[in-house]
Simulated scan of single mutants.
Amino acid sequence: MSTDQQVAPPAAQQPERFENPGLPEHRGRLADLDPRAAKRAERQVALIFAISALASVVAVVAYFVIPLDSTLGSVRLSNLILGLGLGVGMLGIGVGAIYWAKTLMSNVEYIEERHPQRSDAETRQVAADMMQHGVEDSGIGRRPVLKGAVAGAAALAPLPFLVPLVGNLGGDWNVSKFRHTLWGETPEEFSGQLPDGSLGRRLAIDPTDTPIKAADVTIGSVFHVIPHGLNEAEHFYEEKAKAVVLLVRLDPTILKEPADRQDWSYDGIVAYSKICTHVGCPVALYEQQTHHLLCPCHQSTFDITDQAKVVFGPAKRPLPQLPIAVDDEGYLVARSDFNEPVGPSYWERLK
């Protein structure tokens, strides 16, 4: 063994407790020593909180001022300002709180001896006094400017969350909004005439809005379709979100159609809503060999040979089917609207 190797003393020679070396001498900060520096730091913290509050207000104002149903650019601008306002508002509160703690709150280190988990009454009172001392040391009571600034920023920060939530969902939590789509509307310029003389909204390829003929749909082909003329709808995004449909042509012999749906398809062509009945994700993955539609979000799987029934995953009901036919010019048309609300199953509970 090397002569310079250190060997720990026997346990019997070790002291029961080591002497506390203590803490180095505390060095005061500029704000601790100079009242003017403390006042300057206080104004800086208040300014940070004010910027946070202003960002939250700008986000809320932008939500109401910028229209969401005019152009794609306005939607992007609204989302950008909302996101920036929300981010700056939350960031400002965090930065302000940290800067406040670093410049104005006590930075003295305290040592507390270890003790049993349950302290005696006297020790618990000491801890309570220390907490009270910390509150007093933060200066919240004698710094009304900071108190008002942090309270205002904290009160306004949630508004970019709450205002769009209430504004967008307040009136739309109504099953009628999801029961009716543009497939049920038949403007003459966008519709075709059925053999019985009635009109049906033509199916058009998304996004070109080109009407599609039955002869153009071959077995195994898939088309994403929308109501013809949807691009001219007043609320384009809302209406498209409800009306998007997946069109597929199958061998008619493998279709399992109940008696009340015999006229909902045409020569093996079937049309189903693309909106998953689980949480509303787009069901757009078609497995040609199994004839299954797959939702990429939570893997709900629907069998389009059997009324788009659920064969796997968390969805609780089939995809709504769009009844289709062919007009007098050979174009595919919707015989009527969906016979049930599109989208997640929870809308059904609002009846």
Rank of each mutant, 00 (worst) to 15 (best):
R36P: 00
I212F: 07
R124F: 05
A241L: 06
L84M: 11
A55T: 02
P341R: 00
A97T: 11
N107G: 14
H133S: 13
H235S: 12
R118V: 15
A155L: 15
V311F: 05
D337Y: 01
G94V: 14
L169D: 07
E185F: 12
Y63T: 01
Y286W: 11
S2D: 12
F190Y: 15
S191D: 08
H235L: 11
I226P: 00
Q13H: 09
V310G: 07
K213S: 12
G87C: 03
A50P: 06
I254R: 12
A308S: 09
R29Y: 01
R335S: 05
P323C: 12
H278P: 00
A284S: 10
V326R: 10
A121G: 13
L104P: 10
R143E: 05
V270H: 06
Q288K: 14
Q6Y: 14
D137G: 12
I212M: 11
L255D: 07
L104H: 07
G170T: 02
L255C: 07
L82A: 04
F338V: 01
L246N: 07
Y346P: 04
V60R: 02
G280W: 00
E136V: 05
K102F: 10
K256V: 15
K316S: 08
A12L: 03
F18S: 13
G148Q: 10
F223C: 02
E112Y: 12
D328Q: 07
K256I: 14
A157R: 09
V166W: 10
G170L: 12
P24L: 08
E16T: 06
L80N: 06
R43C: 10
L68D: 14
T253E: 15
V283P: 00
K240W: 11
I81E: 08
G73H: 10
V248D: 06
I111H: 15
K39P: 06
S345V: 13
L230Y: 01
I304A: 00
Y63M: 02
L86S: 07
L322M: 10
P318E: 01
A31F: 01
L294N: 08
H26R: 11
V88H: 02
Q117F: 15
P24M: 08
G89D: 05
P282M: 00
W347P: 00
A215L: 02
Q44Y: 08
D263R: 12
V244I: 14
Q14F: 11
G139Y: 00
L250H: 13
I111F: 13
T3A: 09
R317I: 08
N79P: 00
